[in-house]
Amino acid sequence: MAQALVIGAGPAGLMAAEEIARAGHKVTVVEAKPSAARKFLMAGKSGLNLTKNEPRETLIRAYSEASDWLAPMIAECDADMVQDWARGLGQTLFTGSTGRVFPNEMKASPLLRAWLARLDQMGVQRYTRWRWAGWSDAALRFETPDGMQELRPDSTVLALGGASWSRLGSDGAWAPLLAAKGVELTPFAPANAGLQVEWSDHMRAQFGQPIKGVALVAGGQVTRGEAVISARGLEGGGIYQICKQVREGADLTIDLLPDLSLEEVTRRLARPRGKASLSNHLRKALKLGSVRNALLMEFGRPLPNGAEDLSRIIKGLPVRHTGLRPMDEAISTAGGVSRDAVDDQLMLRALPGMFCAGEMLDWEAPTGGYLLTACFATGRWAGRAAARWLDSRS
């Protein structure tokens, strides 16, 4: 059907297809779901955060352990490039106060429609409801509405996603297929996931409330990001930023007064309280507010009477939890195709001519534009590498 095949029509796969077509090669995209980029569309419902408008070096550091090998890919597809690309699709953009970049319309659907129209104009063929089922000798096999189909492309880009939000297509079902071919994989794990907390009844009044003015601390990572109390635990960007540390076993604490030193909190608590109860004394001396006070009572009781001991609790409130939410509820996943399984062009060492892109690679990053940026960047990199592979064989 075509010289190049892209399996997976999410952001990474579509970017790879665009690059291959731009290089003058025929390319076909196949997608297991009835329509393209379902997770992309779902993420865009709350505001499509395309990238983070910050210096390239800062952007790259967000990928922690993967930053070294992702660096050249991000360098060629950084925040400026992503914005230029989106504007080229007719999107007007704005940058929020935190540096996050959004389309003015906020939604993902207008951008996706424009992108698919461009790919159509470039001659990219697309087939939906085509689920990859592995190999038959050298041919790639697909379950389709018309029965089992086989393709023999000259080059393939896999952009099959991670293992979260399976109903949208990222189910990790590809992992056993690659493992059987000798591809080294890292086990999947939840990333950017909420924290499960079994609240006592007194916390019900706080469900849905944001936690403001605190710092979350885990494994040396400190964040002042947002968090929300939900019926199931703690959610939000602040929690997602320390997700990796919690997943690896680090204790999580909350500094309820990060702008005050331990000494200052102790000094305020040491003021004479007269006949005031401890709760009233706390309210007047520290002005914690209802949410922070509720957290203190939830995780800190029985509260010590001494000012210094109580200050230590307030500055490092231990959070009792039962771990992260299930992986399928996570925004993204760690794990997947290991770094050692691919070369510098993202080609699988065990399967020459087959490249990988997007969340199926073993990297993770916090929310805030970093996830999409790396999907675009690895898709672009893999697509260009696949085009060079085709050039070398023409």
Rank of each mutant, 00 (worst) to 15 (best):
F299C: 04
R312I: 06
V291H: 08
N293F: 13
L288W: 08
R325K: 15
A334K: 03
I331H: 06
T333I: 01
G336S: 10
E329W: 07
K275M: 11
V337T: 08
L295Y: 04
A330G: 07
T266E: 13
G300N: 04
R339Y: 06
L269P: 08
R325D: 07
E308Q: 13
P326G: 10
D328I: 06
K315L: 05
G289R: 03
D340V: 14
R301Y: 09
T266I: 10
L324Y: 07
A276V: 03
E308L: 13
K287Y: 11
R271C: 07
V291F: 04
N280V: 07
R292Y: 09
V319T: 08
K275Q: 14
A330L: 05
G336K: 09
L310C: 11
L286D: 01
I314C: 03
G316T: 02
F299K: 02
L295I: 03
S279M: 08
N293H: 14
S277L: 06
H281C: 08
L346H: 08
A307Q: 06
R292H: 11
L288M: 12
E298S: 02
T333Q: 00
A307N: 05
K315F: 02
L278Y: 05
H321A: 13
G335V: 00
R320S: 14
L303T: 01
R267T: 12
P304R: 03
L269C: 09
P304N: 01
H321T: 13
V265M: 06
R325S: 12
R301F: 09
L269Y: 01
V265F: 04
F299Q: 06
A285T: 06
T266N: 11
E329Q: 15
I331G: 04
L317E: 05
V265Q: 07
A270N: 14
V337R: 04
M327I: 15
L288G: 08
L282Y: 03
R325F: 11
V265Y: 00
N293A: 14
T333K: 04
R320F: 04
K275S: 14
D340A: 15
M327V: 13
V291C: 08
L286S: 04
R268G: 10
L303N: 02
G289D: 01
M327W: 00
A285P: 05
R339L: 09
L278K: 11
P318C: 13
R268W: 12
T322S: 15
P304D: 02
A294K: 09
Q345A: 14
S332D: 05
G323Y: 12
A307P: 14
G306C: 04
R339W: 03
A270M: 08
I313K: 15
L282R: 02
R292W: 08
V337W: 04
